[in-house]
Each structure stands twice: as structure tokens, then as C-alpha cells.
Design a protein around this nucleic acid. Structure first.
Length: 100
DNA sequence: CGTATGACGTGCA
DNA sequence: GTGCACGCCATAC
């Protein structure tokens, strides 16, 4: 199928598991164009699909870039998902602390 | 077809 | 650490 990048991105974002977040770049990579992270955000912004958890898509810093409803609202939603936040930054529980 | 736009990412000062 | 500028890709008009 000639699925446009948009369709792929939407499908990928819709497949994001609860409590997880992907960066625009990751989505772009999964879509087949690691350099189209720009288009990814562009697509989501123009697409207001209810089945697209765009709030699970964040920037490279795991920060909310911009949302139609307001970043704070998305943060609240993600908090319910089980994630934690530091202002607009998502707190990653990285195991890189060796003993932790 | 060409131009303009955009919810980004990275590099450098 | 912060701020600025450039580059990239896809979509819409």
C-alpha cells in the first residue's frame, strides 16, 4: 500500500503502549525516515485524531513540545498513565546508576 | 510544480 | 547551561 508517511506515523503513534513515550525522531525512524522527525510533528499537529495519543510523543529531551490542548494537560494525562514528570520533563527511570 | 510552513534535532558560541 | 542558527523531511496550498 502506498501509505503515506502520515499514515505510518499515525499508526505508530496509535500503537504506543500506555505509560510509554516515543520521541518524534523514534517515530520517524519507525516510519522509515529517521530524518523526517520534523514531518512527524507536522503531521500530528494537523491531525487531531482521537485515537492518536499524541501526548505520548515527546521531543528528544522527553519534553512536551506543543499540544493543541496545552502541554500541562498532556502531562496530567501521562501522569495518570503511570509516568512521572519534572515540570514538563518526563522523568526516566534509567537504570544507569549501576546499583539502583 | 514550486513555495511556504512546522508539535524537531543538532551544533556551536 | 542557555540561546541562536542551520538543516532536514513531509504535507498543504
Amino acid at each position: 500500500m502506498n501509505k503515506t508517511f502520515k499514515q505510518k506515523v499515525l499508526a505508530i503513534v496509535a500503537k504506543i503502549p500506555k505509560g510509554k513515550t516515543l520521541t518524534y525522531k523514534q517515530v520517524a525512524v519507525r516510519a522509515g525516515s529517521p530524518r523526517a522527525y520534523r514531518a512527524v510533528g507536522n503531521i500530528l499537529n494537523k491531525n487531531s485524531d482521537p485515537g492518536i495519543p499524541c501526548h505520548r510523543v515527546v521531543g528528544s529531551d522527553k519534553k512536551m513540545r506543543g499540544f493543541n490542548r496545552g502541554i500541562s494537560e498532556k502531562i496530567n494525562l501521562l501522569k495518570k498513565e503511570g509516568l512521572k514528570f519534572s515540570k514538563e520533563k518526563i522523568i526516566l527511570q534509567r537504570t544507569s546508576r549501576a546499583a539502583r
